Simulated assay, not measured.
Amino acid sequence: MDPIALILVVIGVLVLILLLWAIATYNGFVKLRNKVEEAWRQIDVELHRRHDLIPNLVETVKGYASHEKGVFDDVTRARAQAAAAGSSPAEQAQQENVLSSALARLFAVAEAYPELRANQNFQQLQAELTNTEDRIAAGRRYYNANVRELNTKRETFPPSIIASMFNFVRAEYFETEDPAVRATPQVSFTDQGDADAAQ
């Protein structure tokens, strides 16, 4: 075989391999981007469910604690901001954190009214809200895992070349600032030692 023809065949094979790699990498980015978008849609559905439960919860608490107008106004305002369309995941997380704080104040008010806590409607709304919060937390973990995978692939070399060429942007995480979630568990062995000594 002619050496020039051999060189052309080798170059052609290398170009073909490079082209196939570029196509596979591009398709991988598209799949990851679609997984991130799908995961966000699942979170969005649960957030809408959460937002829909809150007015009923506020009305139920109002029936027992009508003088707590400031708390009700805070919850209503935070809900309206969180339910507004057009937020990025990071902005939505910030708005949801404000709403969670307002809801915590609402539940603190409810704690002062034993009749309210015993109310079946309140208990049902609280249980539905808790279930929704659990689904949001699970959705957040799934979404953030997909975001991490997309961002890692986007920032590693050589896929970063394809990411730059086709404008695959970094995805935002949906993170909570809930102190209960972020808090480090406190462990104390002194109580256990004292209990053992007492036995």
Rank of each mutant, 00 (worst) to 15 (best):
A171T: 04
F174T: 09
V181T: 15
A85T: 15
Q124E: 08
F122I: 05
A82G: 01
S164I: 06
A102N: 13
A112D: 14
E149I: 08
E96A: 10
Y143P: 04
A112S: 12
S100R: 13
M165Y: 10
P159K: 04
Q94H: 11
A90V: 03
Q81I: 09
P179Q: 02
Q120H: 14
E177K: 13
I136M: 04
E128Y: 11
L106F: 13
A110T: 00
A78V: 04
I161Y: 14
N151A: 08
K153D: 04
A78F: 12
A102S: 14
A84C: 00
M165P: 13
R154D: 08
E175T: 04
A171I: 02
L125K: 02
A110S: 15
A93W: 03
N121P: 08
T76V: 09
Q124W: 01
L150T: 02
Y113I: 06
P185R: 01
S164A: 15
R140Q: 04
A82P: 05
F107H: 05
E175D: 10
N146C: 04
E177S: 13
A127C: 02
R170D: 14
E96I: 03
L150K: 04
E172R: 00
Q120L: 12
N131L: 14
S160R: 11
A145C: 06
R105C: 08
G139S: 11
N167G: 06
A82T: 10
E111K: 12
R182D: 09
G86V: 05
E128G: 15
R148S: 08
A84I: 05
E175K: 11
N144G: 00
S101V: 07
L106P: 08
Q126S: 15
N97Y: 07
T156G: 14
E128N: 15
E175N: 06
R182L: 15
E175G: 09
L150M: 12
Q124Y: 10
Q94A: 12
A171G: 00
N121E: 06
F166M: 07
Y142W: 07
R140L: 00
N167C: 07
T130H: 15
A137K: 13
M165K: 14
R170T: 15
A80S: 05
S100G: 12
E149Q: 12
R79F: 06
I136V: 12
E91V: 14
M165E: 10
A108T: 13
Q94D: 15
Y173K: 12
A78D: 08
A78Y: 03
S88Q: 02
L103Y: 07
P89D: 01
